[in-house]
Amino acid sequence: MTIAPVVLPQHAAARRRQKENTRSAGYTVLGIVFLGIMLFPVYWMINASLQPSGNTLTADIFPFNPSFAGYEKAIADQGQNLVTSLLISLGTVALSLAIAAPAAYALAQFRFRWINVALLAIIISQMIPGIVIANALYAAYNDIGLLNSIPGLILADASHAIPFAILIMRAFMIGIPPSIVEAARVDGAGLVRAFVSIVVPISRNSIITAGLFAFLFSWSDFLFALTLTTTEEVRPVTLGIYQYLGTQVSNWSAVMATAVLSSIPAIVLLILAQKYIAAGATGGAVK
């Protein structure tokens, strides 16, 4: 008590800090509320997938008696489709990176005369509606026998990813100092070896970002799945959900269970690879 005069200013500062803390805690609460509203449909999807009865639209707010019947049916009906989607998505990642990474490096570092034309072509290609590509590919695939095939869908799905991948990797590679590569060249490495052993490791983060988005784009593809397949042989899960919506609307828990299973890549990557996803979300749009 006797040292009160000394403590007082600290008290004032502490009070002010406390006030600031209360306010920022209030913002956190508000932020959680906003996020809660935005993510409510995702919660509802998970909730509905765990409801016992087939007709889960009368679902409780919370799955008090969780049932996995929806998941059993989903895996029985759509398990094969999930595997198909996975194969197509992995193939799209490999193809997109193999095509886009060297091109991104070339557009970033080689002094070609027509670079601006190439960049313009890439930006415009991102704007071409998918239905235009599907229209033309259906006829072409029909002639060369690529309908209902995984390679056919990989090639088509790469159109979602390649322009984006080139732009996002180029944005990074433009910052690589040419001296690093030149040093290796002096030591006798060819262009290709210098690219593989120096440029690729340095650009790892942007390559991972491009790869993750290639995966998500391909995994989410619905248009090419819908137009370039005609049988049940090769059926990505997105098309499986669409077919469910047409025929199984009475069995919502199975539809929602499939939806949850198809959301796993996005949810897992958002949590485990947040850094890369955030980089892709901003990098892709602004260039």
Binding site: L39, S220, F222, A259, A266, L269, L270, I277, A278
Partner: peptide
């Protein structure tokens, strides 16, 4: 976390 709706497949 807010990015989630944008990353989900549209058909989902």
């Amino acid at each position: 976390m807010l990015l989630l709706p944008w990353l989900l497949p549209l058909i989902v």
